[in-house]
Design a binder for these strands. Structure first.
Lengths: 116, 116
DNA sequence: GCGATAGTTGAACATATGATCAATAATATG
DNA sequence: CATATTATTGATCATATGTTCAACTATCGC
């Protein structure tokens, strides 16, 4: 109501806007953790490959051009985030996607990339 | 054709599968950079806030509970990635989203998060 | 059981990243 | 012009992250 307040105070924070926004704001933690997992070229490549087919670690490593050890480290992270699952067959371990949502996220992201 | 090859060689890489996959594999660099930008709680909060409204740095900092300086650093990154744009009005700088795709990515990600 | 292959793990290292602080620029007000 | 407010920038620091290497486990064929 009073313009005086506006002129004598340092341009006040928009307390109302801030409070309302904070009330609406969703939990970020989980989504951040998913983005962190996807924010690496090796892991993103792995996820893309797994979105097409099932892969053993050996072939996966060759396809993304890194060592088996490094691939395994990344797969561990992906498993911990429940984005992939593994299945043992003889000496080999086969990995596949374990989250329907990931494919949608990948699609959305790469669709996005085509426009840039 | 020859099974002998299979038994005397170390289980060979599936060269065909690997080559085909590599040919199909999209450029990861850009998408990785977008995920990197979104893989931080402060920046993700900022993006979420901007997806709803336009904000000045001052209010934005209060809303995400960090310093103006830190907020500004993050906004610089977001600007460099062309995800947000700024508009100066007097002493203030107002930020808003500059990429239609980001909203879709955010939606997809938070939709995802509800199921986990 | 032995040797070879597939995969996992932990340690070590270099680099990347995010927060803070102090200094600076730009704009508005008196 | 002096002062206050808003925002940006650069330096510094602690921590997080990705890769490599060597050691280890598990499984297969002989």
């Amino acid at each position: 109501m009073s313009d005086d307040l506006d002129t004598c105070l340092p341009h006040a924070l928009d307390e109302d806007k801030i409070r309302k926004a904070q009330e609406m704001m969703p939990e970020m933690e989980y989504v951040v953790s998913i983005f962190k997992v996807m924010a690496d070229e090796t892991r993103l490549s792995i996820l893309w490959l797994l979105s097409v087919d099932e892969w053993c670690v050996h072939d996966l490593a060759a396809a993304v051009k890194t060592s088996v050890s490094n691939t395994s480290h990344h797969l561990r992270l992906l498993r911990a985030s429940r984005l992939v699952r593994s299945r043992k067959e003889g000496q080999r371990v086969f990995y596949s996607l374990d989250d329907e949502h990931v494919t949608r996220l990948l699609d959305e992201a790469f669709k996005h990339s085509k426009h840039n």
